[in-house]
Design a protein around this nucleic acid. Structure first.
Lengths: 204, 204
DNA sequence: ACCTGAACACCGTTCAAGT
DNA sequence: ACCTGAACACCGTTCAAGT
């Protein structure tokens, strides 16, 4: 069972008071069950089913995660780290601008597409500070800004290209890919258009 | 009441056997109620509430519209006509390419954004022939192709730009605008990027 | 301090009984 | 031929009772 792997490294946010041992165990079981359920049935899957899979009462799930978005947020934790790692890798790689952005956008769409409905969740949280996922969006915006700035420093970006707008556009592509059930690679033509739209046209 | 307007011009698709008078009246009442409810609460609003608003039994709603998508499809009827009209207007206008496409994309996003969740519905129906909304998507794809072809004829489009991909991209923008609750005008920067991505860069 | 699961509310969907 | 609304199933959410 994959339950073991993450049950060992008790998943908890850095600066929070420690949970009682049994509570921590339940929290981990819920997260494992949620990850599996989201993967199979998408982010709209029944919370009751997740509780049952995790072998806990429904109330326990709600105690740990008052809303569905809180649960999604927790499940997204490792996922945000992966994106930050990708960002760093691309910036360090020193690839030519177009290749760097192609790589970055592709990974972005791939990462955002882990669960059906995850892309849509992200989009609606992006401008909603009240959403539990809002912070995760900030991380994405920051990573995207970092990558774009590194390309801008090479003079490859058109004037007036705003990282926020690019982020929205790419999220839109991720969402299209998600709801049309496109393979990640099938998003490439759309991403290519965006690239042509933000990169300085080849100069003689 | 706005109910009167559309109750007079009994809304029925061209080639279908006529309904009994009372059935036709109920159908119209349901559509009016659905339009109002979708506008207020979005495309995910309770069907039961729509039936109540329309003053019919729940079963009557299901008799006329077996699935939620069938109802959405019917509500979208006049909406698709509006898009086709916009398409024709833009093609006939003989505006310079960039202005023509700006106009077209803006209207597209505006039209698709009538109801919360409508854009998402469209996206997922685009590649799903089994969906009742699929036909409506075909209309949109056709209109979009017409506009793009008219611009291509002027040599303003980059080589290899596919109408289908552009349609997907713009739907994605509409979806972002929808779920982030952006005003239609706020989609302009994203649309500008797409324009730069598909138009031939200015030549000296 | 935390867990359980019965109980409630809400919504989609069906279908027997009615006109 | 069509309509009604009670009935059922399913899901989210709460909370009294338990450890």
């Amino acid at each position: 069972m994959s339950a073991q792997a993450s049950a060992q490294s008790s998943e908890q946010s850095a600066a929070e008071k420690p949970l009682r041992a049994d509570a921590q165990r339940n929290r981990d079981k819920i997260l494992d069950a949620a990850r599996a359920a989201f993967r199979e049935r998408g982010a709209a899957c029944s919370l009751d089913e997740i509780a049952k899979r995790a072998g806990v009462g429904a109330g326990t799930l709600y105690r740990h995660f008052p809303t569905r978005d809180d649960l999604i947020d927790a499940v997204m934790r490792d996922w945000a780290e992966r994106i930050q790692a990708d960002c760093q890798a691309v910036v360090d790689s020193d690839l030519p601008p177009r290749m760097a952005l192609t790589e970055w956008f592709n990974r972005f769409v791939e990462n955002v597409g882990i669960y059906q409905g995850a892309a849509a969740k992200l989009m609606s949280a992006m401008d909603d500070p009240a959403s539990p996922i809002y912070r995760k969006c900030q991380v994405l915006v920051a990573a995207n800004t970092t990558v774009l700035d590194s390309v801008r420093a090479k003079g490859a970006l058109r004037d007036g290209v705003d990282a926020r707008e690019v982020m929205r556009l790419v999220s839109g592509v991720a969402s299209v890919a998600d709801s049309s059930r496109l393979a990640p690679a099938e998003a490439a033509p759309m991403l290519a258009i965006i690239l042509d739209g933000i990169l300085e046209p080849d100069r003689p």
